[in-house]
Write a protein that binds this DNA or RNA. Structure first.
Lengths: 140, 140
DNA sequence: CTACATCCTCTAGCGACTAGAGGTGCAAGA
DNA sequence: TCTTGCACCTCTAGTCGCTAGAGGATGTAG
């Protein structure tokens, strides 16, 4: 029926060909059937799987978390507490990362704005890096 | 005089012992003298260097960027345009990353809030992952 | 039939460390 | 003086999630 080559699967899912093979190698994507000439032959179910994986990766979930989420998806009777916990943990990570990057941004802005574009011995960028005491934020 | 072991250097700089050795191995930190028993013996200049490197790493600069920044610091007559450019590039990266993470946060919030804590077949987390069309943002 | 794109497997590389094995140095207490 | 035990040494390999490349087989269009 609608058997699909790995290249076509890559085009449709937005996941690159070597990455698809990589996902198979780590057991994230089921091994597809092969053609007579040993070429992978995907079915729609594989495309759904790939879309799920891709989306989860874009949201920053680690491969192990995705493995768990996929297993949950396959067993619809299970409680979704695990999925919920994984998503919440990721949310907390993201929030923390945003806070941290926001502090960094402020510090970088100070460095860049303070730069008089002269010589290095008066460069605010180098100064701030050399002397942590000049930081605006005690975030690290 | 004030010769310092690698352990003490680690404690004072906040950089771990294996990381200090790693920085030496990639030429970021100058090789210190050795004791009779072949142990590394650091001087204050090494500690300043380590502080600089650590601070730059915390700001997310890559090792190659730090290598350039350190070279600039060693030659105070040079124009600071390079340092300025490196810092600006990093600032733009950070801003971009914050925007991206903020979009992710929103999407994760929707997932987590929509979760009815029931069974997987009605789990918003799994649903959103499986169907990208349910995303709030077309960021990816 | 011949190009030529696409596919296959396998190994190695990326960045910035981190972990562990197997051995040596050194300072302090008994 | 000896021994305990921590800190140090080098070297290799592993982490994560891919990505690149070699060297060869397959599939398709003209």
């Amino acid at each position: 029926m609608k058997k699909i080559t790995i290249g076509e699967a890559a085009r449709r899912s937005g996941v690159k060909v070597p990455t698809i093979r990589y996902y198979e190698s780590i057991g994230l994507l089921a091994e597809p059937e092969r053609s007579e000439g040993n070429q992978r032959s995907y079915e729609p179910s594989h495309l759904h799987r790939l879309a799920f994986i891709r989306h989860a990766r874009e949201l920053g979930f680690e491969v192990e978390a995705i493995r768990t989420l996929l297993a949950l998806q396959d067993d619809p009777n299970q409680s979704c507490a695990s999925a919920d916990a994984i998503a919440k943990a990721r949310l907390i990570e993201v929030e923390q990362r945003i806070r941290s990057l926001t502090a960094l941004r402020t510090e970088l802005e100070v460095m860049v704005e303070g730069c008089g574009h002269g010589r290095v011995d008066r460069c605010r960028v180098i100064e701030v890096l050399a002397d942590h005491g000049q930081c605006m934020h005690p975030h690290h």
